[in-house]
Write a protein that binds this DNA or RNA. Structure first.
Length: 1043
RNA sequence: GGGCCAGUAGCUUAGGUUGGUUGGAGCACCCGGCUGAUAACCGGGAGGUCAAGAGUUCAAAUCUCUUCUGGCCCA
């Protein structure tokens, strides 16, 4: 039996009830288990780090993943939804350092690695509860009881296995490379980590003069990093550029001609000489500082192609220790690597003036010093992007460091091929942002000089002669090599470093390379490591590879999306996933990216409490294309609640109120669709079309479009038209077939709509479903199948006819408002002038039009002749050019003619002859404008190819009927004010003039019926529970309502 | 400096592939109507140099180029 739910919708209460229902009845588990024998749809959860609170961006990814998975599940696919946690890496260490008050790596070692890593392990799950709660609360169905966790021994063992594969393919090497380095974290960062942290900064850039050794002249160079000048060893020029020597403010300077033209524009200088870059090679100059004691020849001009003429002076200062280009060109020329900076980013002791200072902080003081020494030519504020550490926000330094690498450049071709096989949404990322990155792939700097991470499984023999290197690929292998290996072990530091490992060649002790690995490698291994492959679950791995669908935010493009592809490419030589949906960022109300530091993000739990998960989900899913950024703020979600969720609830409430009153039973009372009204057939046609569009949009992940077609179906078609037009049908006392047809249709639509919406808004849909379902249906909507459109119920002509009728209603109402006759007053007739085929489309739907614009009778005509008068007026723009000065005379002549006769003559004879100042002029219809005017008591309007005419005559009878409706409306509003039940009977007394009483006489039954009045009495002073006096168009009426 | 995405009413946005009547909606505002759906509904009004400029074309919000602004990514 259909119940009538509470009128007010309380999102939090309903959603918590449904959550409880799911848990108590194991619905999530059942939704997976019941599809166990079906084809599977493989999903991989990108593991979040649980050591920070979830924010709106995380909510968006989780909502989107859930939507797709629910959709595919309802389509019958078997989907595992294993949760995952990313647990290693710097962010965790930083948290712990803060907590323990440790300032740097030295502090950590002093504190003890075992204790430190134990703290890290604890810290990782600090916010796990908040994450689990959020995930559940928003309705993201994820198996959080059996997650994969990157810190587990099994997981690490799988990662080691994969590294050994790389080792055996000779892809792992220890290299020397200039890498972005975080002085605070004390570790190098990989390219995709650097990519996380570019910021625009405004910094001083300076022009410096380097004095030539054998001449009283200066090279003018430019830099944005003054602190690197101390380690300067060379100046680079472009071999093919032209350089000039000039006299400027009494000094001789050398710089690129092209740059001089820009920098010294409008200033006076004297050209002394010119040469090409090549001519300058090997020219020696004097160092700015004497701190460096290079072991090789330094301080001369070298040639380099990377010198640009876009900024600076065309002369670039070279410090091989601090730049990739610098390092490479240094190798070529055999330049010394002068390294005067400690690993913590401070100057070494030999730099007496600034020793111990952080290099970037020393910039202003260095600039001052250069100025004092006369080497500074000028400064300029320069805005550019500079990389910062993605976690601790320190500015990165470029450093020549030793590190372990994976030679991704060797498999670049495979990466490109594999990328080509992936479906990217949106498409442009494939060859754009991601493709660019892959085509120019750099070797992956894998090792990290840190503590909390998967240890690099490489051991090197300590014997000076042997130096044998091994990469360990399993726990058994390590056991084999170790003197002692306990049963209770933990594959982290310091355990792995405390093992005594023997060299298989010489039996000497081996020492592990002390680094841990990039945590992006951990998460990128998830597709096999989650199964402890290849040590266990081989079958499961094979069934779940490749992955059908992954989805994360745009910032993962070169993060997780890349690390998955990279690892899968060198391990299995194939792409790891087939479809990847890249999500836009979540921005605040002012279009600014949400970040902790700006504190501009909304706490999702507040919105979940106020507006609920469904409204939150619907907003995120419908606001924008998934890959576009979406603004997020509470008012927006509140609007969604009002517009969509509550419209759904109110219309559902409307249906159930009446259906329960009539004890509508879907098992017995359903009327076959063929026996229902056109209106019913129409909404079912619209519904099935909506279903088919929704499915179409899912194919291409155009989720916003899917959501919008549903929204417009619900609001425009179903709520604002179908239900509005069906109200009267439900208002009859008896259980008529038509009323049952209405209930049947509403039942069909609500049941169908709930299924259609279930993946989007899983709570309210299950709430509705629970009320509508009959015993033979699954116990939750999430155990149902998704809908297929039923083509038999799609009726093109019916939809087109209805569209036209609605268009007529629109202009009809506008017309009434224009002529000033309220809709409440009926008019006797309307005429539609249109073609035969249009008439066929709409003739069966005219009852709707009748009621909406309140006319007694509607008929069709092919032309407007009976109602409109056609006259003609001279068309000046035609006549003007032809007759010039005579026009005035022509117009006067026309005015003297009978205007009706004129039109007749023009249409029958084709022309009229006028005599103007003795001259005969013949005019055709083209020389006139045709003007149509309505005859008396006719109003006209037009839409598309249909003209609607109204007879505006108000007879006394019509006026009486309208007045009766005025009275009804007042009584109804009083009923409402009294908060009466729908069925409650009342007694009504009316105080009104005798004349109006007479008017109402014929309509008493109507008034009684509409207002459920047992009797209507006329009294001078009406009585009742509520008595009100109304002004009805200057008529005073006092009405009393009693129960 | 390069790449990608975007810029439409006060706000949120549709349309853009396939150029073609007067650029649609919603929120907010004003006027009117309707209502036994009270976080409603219907009609009307006001609000747009479709970021700017140029080009192609009979015709450009739509295609092309340039510029500006914002976002993201890279160097």
């Amino acid at each position: 039996m259909i119940r009538s739910p509470p009128q007010k919708y309380n999102p939090k209460k309903v959603e918590e009830k449904i959550l409880d229902f799911w848990v108590k009845n194991d619905i999530f588990k059942k939704s997976i288990e019941q599809r166990k024998t079906n084809d599977s749809y493989v999903f991989l959860e990108g593991p979040p780090t649980a050591n920070g609170m979830p924010h709106p961006g995380h909510v968006l990814t989780r909502v989107m993943k859930d939507l797709i998975l629910r959709y595919q599940a309802m389509n019958g696919y078997y989907i595992l939804r294993k949760a995952g946690w990313d647990t290693h890496g710097l962010p965790v260490e930083i948290e712990v350092e803060k907590k323990l008050g440790l300032k740097d790596k030295h502090d950590i070692e002093k504190y003890g690695l075992k204790k430190f890593n134990d703290e890290c392990k604890k810290s990782v799950f600090k916010y796990e509860n908040a994450w689990v709660e959020m995930t559940k609360r928003i309705g993201f169905w994820l198996d959080m009881d059996n997650p994969y966790i990157t810190l587990k021994n099994d997981y690490i063992e799988s990662v080691w296995w994969s590294l050994k594969q790389a080792w055996e393919k000779k892809l792992l090497y220890r290299g020397h490379k200039v890498v972005p380095y975080c002085p605070r974290c004390g570790t190098a960062l990989s390219a995709h980590e650097v990519a996380q942290g570019y910021k625009n900064v405004e910094e001083p850039s300076i022009f410096i003069k380097f004095k030539l050794k054998d001449e009283d002249a200066y090279f003018l160079a430019w830099t944005t990093t003054p602190w690197t000048l101390i380690s300067n060893v060379a100046l680079a020029v472009h071999p093919n550029a032209t350089y000039i020597k000039i006299l400027y403010h009494g000094q001789t300077l050398i710089l690129a001609e092209e740059r001089a033209a820009v920098l010294l524009k409008g200033q006076e200088y004297e050209m002394l000489d010119g040469f090409s870059g090549k001519d300058l090679e090997k020219t020696e100059y004097e160092p700015l500082f004497d701190y460096a004691k290079p072991d090789k020849k330094a301080w001369y001009v070298i040639l380099a192609d990377f010198v640009t003429m876009e900024d600076g002076t065309g002369i670039v200062h070279i410090a091989p220790a601090f730049g990739e280009d610098d390092y490479n060109v240094g190798v070529k020329y055999g330049l010394p690597v002068v390294q005067l900076v400690n690993l913590d980013g401070t100057f070494k002791d030999e730099v007496t003036l600034w020793k111990g200072q952080f290099v970037k902080d020393a910039d202003p003081s260095i600039i001052k010093h250069l100025e004092k020494e006369g080497f500074l030519e000028g400064t300029k504020e320069h805005t550019h992007e500079y990389p910062f550490c993605w976690r601790c926000d320190s500015p990165l330094l470029y450093y020549a460091m030793e590190s372990w690498f994976i030679a991704m450049s060797k498999v670049q071709k495979n990466l490109v091929d594999n990328n080509d096989q992936i479906n990217w949404y949106p498409r442009h990322i494939q060859q754009g942002r991601f493709g660019d990155f892959i085509r120019d792939v750099k070797d992956w700097a894998l090792s990290r000089n840190r503590y909390w991470g998967t240890p690099l499984p490489i051991w090197i023999c300590t014997d000076k002669k042997c130096k044998h290197q091994i990469c360990v690929g399993s726990v058994d292998e390590l056991k084999e090599l170790s003197d002692e290996f306990p049963d209770d072990y933990d594959l982290h530091k310091p355990f792995v470093d405390e093992l005594t490992v023997r060299c298989p060649k010489c039996n000497s002790k081996m020492k592990r390379e002390k680094e841990v690995i990039d945590c992006w490698y951990d998460s990128g291994s998830a597709f096999f490591a989650q199964w402890h492959y290849p040590f266990e679950n081989k079958k499961q791995f094979e069934e779940n590879f490749p992955i059908d669908f992954i989805s994360e935010a745009l910032d993962q493009t070169r993060g997780w999306f890349y690390s998955l592809l990279a690892i899968s490419t060198f391990l299995f030589e194939r792409p790891p996933y087939k479809n990847v949906l890249t999500l836009g960022l979540v921005l605040d109300k002012d279009n600014v990216k949400m970040s902790k530091s700006k504190r501009n993000y909304v706490d999702p739990t507040i919105i979940l409490d106020h507006e609920g998960a469904d409204a939150l989900r619907w907003y995120l899913l419908s606001a924008n294309a998934p890959w576009n950024s979406t603004r997020f703020y509470e008012e927006a979600v509140r609007e969604t609640l009002g517009k969509f969720i509550l419209t759904l609830w109110n219309s559902y409430n409307f249906f159930t109120t009446y259906a329960s009153l009539d004890k509508f039973d879907p098992r017995q009372d359903m009327i076959p669709i063929n026996d229902r009204q056109l209106l019913d057939k129409w909404i079912l046609s619209r519904f099935n079309r909506t279903v088919s569009e929704v499915r179409k949009y899912f194919e291409t992940f155009e989720i916003h479009k899917a959501a919008r077609v549903i929204e417009s179906f619900l609001i425009e078609d179903f709520s604002n038209w179908y239900l509005r037009r069906s109200r009267k049908r439900l208002w009859v006392e008896e259980k008529t077939d038509d009323k049952l047809a209405g209930y049947s249709t509403m039942y069909d639509v609500f049941l169908g709509l709930s299924k259609l919406l279930a993946p989007f808004v899983p709570f309210i849909t299950d709430e509705i479903y629970q009320n509508l379902r009959t015993g033979d249906m699954p116990e939750s909507i999430h155990l149902c199948d998704y809908l297929q459109p039923d083509e038999r119920h799609i009726d093109e002509n019916l939809e087109e006819g209805m569209r036209r009728v609605r268009a007529l209603v629109e202009v009809g109402r506008a017309l009434r408002s224009k002529v000033g006759i309220k809709v409440r007053y009926p008019l006797s007739s309307a005429v539609i002038v249109c073609k035969k085929d249009v008439e066929v489309l709409i003739k069966d739907l005219l009852d709707l039009l009748n009621e909406e614009i309140n006319v007694k009778h509607i008929s069709f005509e092919r032309d407007t002749g009976k109602f409109m008068t056609k006259t003609v007026k001279p068309n000046h723009s035609q006549l003007g050019p032809k007759y010039k000065a005579k026009v005035k005379g022509i117009v006067t002549a026309i005015e003297e003619l009978d205007e009706h006769g004129l039109y007749e003559d023009l249409t029958t004879k084709g022309e009229v002859a006028l005599s103007v100042v003795g001259e005969e002029i013949k005019l055709t219809i083209k020389d006139f404008k045709i003007v149509e005017t309505e005859k008396e008591h006719i109003a006209s309007t037009q839409t598309e190819d249909m003209i609607l005419l109204l007879d505006t005559t108000l007879t006394p009878e019509l006026e009486a009927e309208g007045f009766a409706r005025e009275i009804v409306r007042r009584i109804q509003s009083m009923r409402k004010e009294l908060d009466l039940d729908v069925e409650q009977q009342i007694s009504t007394s009316v105080g009104i003039s005798k004349e109006k009483q007479q008017m109402l006489k014929d309509w008493e039954d109507y008034i009684k019926g509409e207002t459920r009045s047992q009797a209507i009495t006329y009294e001078d002073k009406p009585t009742g529970k509520l008595v009100k006096t109304w002004d009805i168009d200057e008529v005073k009426a006092t009405i009393g309502v009693g129960t």
